[in-house]
């Protein structure tokens, strides 16, 4: 019997280590494919830039040089380093995100839970949602002070994806779970806090991920018009203005990297929160 158990244990360990090795190997393959794709992209860019031979499309090494230089030299317009521009943009994103999160999540929960609130809020939401956030720029400049004018544009970009996904998250909860909770005598407050909110988290995080992506697009557009205090969007716009396209592309790459990190961070938080709340 002991022998049998020991053999079963051995087999189990073997299978587990086999899958672990396989999992690591798969990860390495995925990483390898991603790196290869980036290398091919850069080579294609370089080739096309050489064929075009125009300053409007600088070669990758020129952009890389401009990128490095931007962290050590102040730009000639705002006298800021790239690090300061990044900070300025991140603060605007942060303000926009915090305000959007504080407003969109409770509103989404209420609109998903109550038909009356949904009927009242839905026409307004659907009326405003299709308006591109950048169309609000002149309004924001006049009605809000720095940094809330640009943060407002970011807020609009993040608010709707978070709201819609929260509503969707509430609506897709299995009614059996709600009924079971009711049968067990769960109070309204606990229902929202302990049943509905945890169930909404995966779709809410999807909304946050999408919203942050849109937020970065919005911040660049907003910073290109009438902004003080620098920002990566400002940097891109000013460099384009004077024809320094290698610097402009460097700014664009910074936005890409920041967006990638932010969205990656949101995915990471999503996994951790889901695990913490027992969803995975």
């Amino acid at each position: 019997m002991n022998k049998k158990a020991s053999k079963a244990q051995k087999n189990r360990t073997f299978f587990l280590s086999f899958f672990k090795v396989k999992k690591n190997r798969d990860r390495l393959i995925h990483l390898g494919i991603s790196i290869l794709a980036v290398i091919i992209f850069i080579l294609a860019w370089d080739l096309y830039a050489q064929l075009q031979n125009k300053p409007y499309l600088p070669r990758p090494h020129m952009v890389f040089d401009a990128l490095i230089a931007s962290f050590f030299n102040r730009d000639p317009f705002s006298q800021r380093y790239m690090g300061e521009h990044i900070l300025a943009s991140m603060v605007r994103i942060l303000y926009g995100f915090i305000i959007a999160f504080i407003l969109a999540v409770p509103l989404g929960l209420l609109m998903g839970w109550s038909k009356h609130v949904h009927n009242a809020g839905n026409p307004i939401v659907e009326l405003i949602r299709p308006i591109p956030p950048i169309a609000w720029i002149p309004f924001a400049i006049v009605f809000f002070d720095e940094p809330f004018d640009t943060a407002f544009i970011v807020f609009l970009g993040i608010f709707f994806p978070v709201l819609i996904n929260t509503i969707f998250g509430v609506k897709r909860i299995d009614p059996i779970i709600i009924d079971a909770a009711k049968t067990l005598g769960v109070t309204k407050r606990n229902m929202l806090q302990k049943v509905i909110f945890p169930a909404v988290i995966p779709t809410l995080m999807t909304g946050i991920r999408i919203g942050l992506g849109i937020g970065w697009m919005c911040i660049v557009a907003a910073e290109m018009v009438g902004v003080t205090g620098g920002g990566v969007g400002f940097y891109i716009s000013a460099m384009a203005d004077v024809g320094r396209y290698d610097d402009m592309f460097a700014g664009m790459i910074v936005i890409g990297i920041l967006g990638f990190i932010t969205v990656g961070g949101a995915s990471y938080i999503e996994r951790r929160v889901s695990r913490w709340m027992g969803m995975r």
Binding site: E84, M224, V225, V227, S237
Partner: peptide, 30 residues
């Protein structure tokens, strides 16, 4: 920290003219 740091950079703005890019047609209204 990010919010506090951002506050530090604002100080410099008090001493300088803050140039913002605006289309000339919108300048009067601004």
């Amino acid at each position: 920290s990010v919010l506090l740091l951002a506050g530090c950079f604002e100080e410099d703005g008090e001493k300088s003219i803050k140039a913002v890019k605006i289309a000339p047609k919108d300048m009067k209204a601004s």
